[in-house]
Design a binder for these strands. Structure first.
Lengths: 196, 196
DNA sequence: CCCAGAACTAGAACCGGTTACAGTTCTGCC
DNA sequence: GGCAGAACTGTAACCGGTTCTAGTTCTGGG
């Protein structure tokens, strides 16, 4: 139910779902969280409000599902163009910064989806998990093959936390996007430089 | 306006503010975020709804202000009973776990205040900053006097992120409280063991 | 082709955060 | 004491997320 295609949905159903997510992304990019109004999404996607609620448990689930799609797209792009950097820390930071840059281009949308992610709805949690595992997989590509996997996983999780928290700080206006990237880089070096 | 007393408030005004926060804490502890209804808070605190909105910019600001008070109380207690542990990492983890344990006792309330913290309202951001700086100060007490301050600050910020993100994961049901503590410990060791 | 049940639609209704407003009470100042 | 203005009260209204309902359309099995 998260988004991982094919869940035995009719063609027209998959299309409805797609239109709903696209409408949410558009409205979110134009005016942020508040502008994503369920009535508007339904209207723009040309489906009934009740149907929208059949596909998504609520506004936050809709936005979270949109983020999952976004993250998946990012993974594709990273796979095409691998991370650059001398040290492992640099490559990890490069990857996470790239993810952040994508969000930087759509600040209103980013703030909307991140805000949606931080709600307790179980359906949303599922999406959060999907996003986490994508970020986790993406990071793994920055490590050399002979890097101990156990340590790598612990570091990835910790950096995932720092990334998420920094992102939260950015979309909520606690810090600028630059500081967010700096915090990330600082943490990456604190953990990785000792293994160079 | 965050909460730092004295802002030239009448005695009766300070009392109103106090009653409002207490009411919010009570309702939050009983039923979580949804149970903190502005009409109820106003009624329980014996103030008019409009007045409540004169003191707090919205529901989230009210809850965030309540969290600031909570964090400040925690700081007092930590100052009384300093952190225990052999290594610096252990002491830092001890401190952060203690903070987490306090929240563990009021899961519904914790989830309510954390959820409130993650909104973009500027007033809320101010509260978030207050809480951050409290956590930052608290952590500093776990380090030996001769620990390089610059590194300590970077580590504190990174661990603050991990703490916040883990907390978010817990209140939103992504992970159990135990895992949250473990993630924290793992990150602390990744960064601190190299300085033992 | 036909039917039962699921899915969909339009629209009203409910609920709670937030705002607006008219009237009352408090506060500082003369 | 008396006054102006700020603060407070009670209540109604507004808005948007969510739920509900009655009627319509689609889908798969016989």
């Amino acid at each position: 139910m998260t988004e991982t295609a094919g869940d035995q949905l009719t063609k027209s159903q998959a299309a409805r779902r797609e239109r709903a997510i696209r409408a949410a992304l558009e409205l979110g990019a134009e005016g942020g969280y508040d502008a994503v109004q369920m009535r508007d999404v339904a209207h723009r996607a040309d489906i009934a409000l009740g149907t929208l609620y059949r596909y998504f448990s609520g506004k936050d689930h809709l936005l979270a599902a949109a983020l999952v799609e976004w993250a998946t797209d990012l993974e594709q792009r990273v796979n095409v163009r691998p991370p650059k950097g001398e040290s492992t820390a640099d490559r990890v930071v490069d990857i996470l910064r790239r993810a952040t840059r994508a969000m930087e281009k759509e600040p209103l949308l980013s703030s909307a989806v991140v805000r949606a992610l931080s709600t307790g709805d179980p359906q949303v949690s599922q999406c959060q998990e999907d996003v986490s595992s994508v970020m986790f997989r993406i990071q793994a590509r920055a490590y050399p093959d002979d890097f101990p996997a156990a340590v790598r996983d612990r570091i990835s999780r910790a950096l995932g936390h720092v990334w998420f928290s920094s992102l939260m700080g950015w979309v909520n206006g606690w810090v600028g996007i630059g500081e967010a990237g700096d915090e990330l880089a600082s943490a990456a070096h604190l953990m990785l430089d000792q293994y160079e």
